[in-house]
């Protein structure tokens, strides 16, 4: 009796893992079973010309089963960097383009948002002066900027980066301001008794103290940026994972669409993991 309880306790993680796998298997099995396309032709009857032109005798298209998606994933992932012309590139290249746009826009936003956030956080005057503008600009859907960006910037690549920039700047700006404003007054006072210059106070005391909040803002931003790039690329086209989704939608190829949805999820998760591990470096215990 005693042994069994320890055994149960010991394998909680393992059991959770097994349960998760079983649930996935049942779900995928149902999906696979319910969507199985009946074999073409039935009793081997010849298709009429009409049926041939209609692409076979089967009924309307269904959601592709998991086995098809896995096959497609294998095909795409075994050759991720092929380049068969400007409109047909491997999934690796498409993701690369999207990551490049996201990171460029995002880093630009960080370079601008963090200093301004600092300023706003440290000066109640600036905070009150800039707050109305931030509140108006923040809720605008980034895609609404696209037509204006295309018109003013006159370059679709730069416009996509601008859209990423404008949507990832707000969480970083607000979180930086919030973090800076929330630094405990005691610490600032200690810095003052040590006669640190304002600049030194900012770097030695306020920045480390506000860093976890700033990183939280950066983590929210990268998530939003990755969400937006897919939509932006569907609109502008050319390259990127958003274009890939659009191009396969255009061909009504749901297998590829589901595959790319999974890829978008995986890359988004990796981006988030990267930032959360950076965040862990700057957390502190009071």
């Amino acid at each position: 009796m005693d042994r069994t309880t320890t055994e149960w306790k010991f394998s909680l993680n393992l059991r959770a893992g097994i349960l998760a796998v079983v649930m996935l298997a049942v779900l995928l099995g149902l999906w696979e079973g319910l969507n199985h396309v009946p074999a073409l032709g039935g009793g081997g009857a010849e298709l009429s010309e009409y049926e041939k032109l209609m692409g076979g005798a089967d009924e309307t298209a269904k959601v592709p089963p998991p086995s098809e998606i896995l096959t497609r994933a294998w095909e795409e992932l075994s050759n991720p960097f092929y380049d068969a012309g400007p409109n047909d590139k491997g999934i690796g290249i498409q993701l690369g383009y999207s990551l490049y746009r996201v990171l460029t826009g995002y880093l630009l936003a960080a370079v601008i948002a963090i200093p301004i956030g600092f300023l706003i956080g440290m000066s109640p005057l600036m905070y009150k002066a800039l707050n109305p503008y931030i509140q108006v600009l923040r809720p605008i859907s980034p895609l609404a900027w696209m037509p204006l960006a295309l018109f003013i910037i006159r370059d679709s690549e730069a416009s996509a980066i601008f859209v990423i920039f404008i949507c990832s700047i707000w969480p970083m700006l607000l979180n930086t301001a919030f973090g800076v404003a929330g630094v405990r007054q005691d610490w600032v006072n200690v810095a003052r008794t040590h006669e640190l210059s304002p600049l030194k106070t900012a770097f030695k005391v306020i920045l480390p103290a506000a860093a976890p909040t700033i990183l939280t803002g950066m983590r929210i931003s990268i998530g939003i940026a990755w969400l937006v790039i897919v939509a932006a690329e569907m609109l502008v086209g050319g390259t990127g994972i958003g274009y890939y989704v659009w191009n396969e939608w255009n061909n009504l190829d749901l297998t590829s669409v589901i595959f790319s949805i999974l890829m978008i999820g995986v890359v988004g998760m990796l981006l988030d993991l990267a930032l959360s591990s950076i965040a862990r470096l700057v957390t502190y215990q009071e």
Binding site: P86, N87, P147, L150, S156, G237, G238
Partner: peptide
């Protein structure tokens, strides 16, 4: 290079 475009508004812009 023939480049695929998502729609006419983007083609125009």
């Amino acid at each position: 290079s023939v480049i695929k475009t998502a729609g006419w508004a983007v083609a125009r812009d």
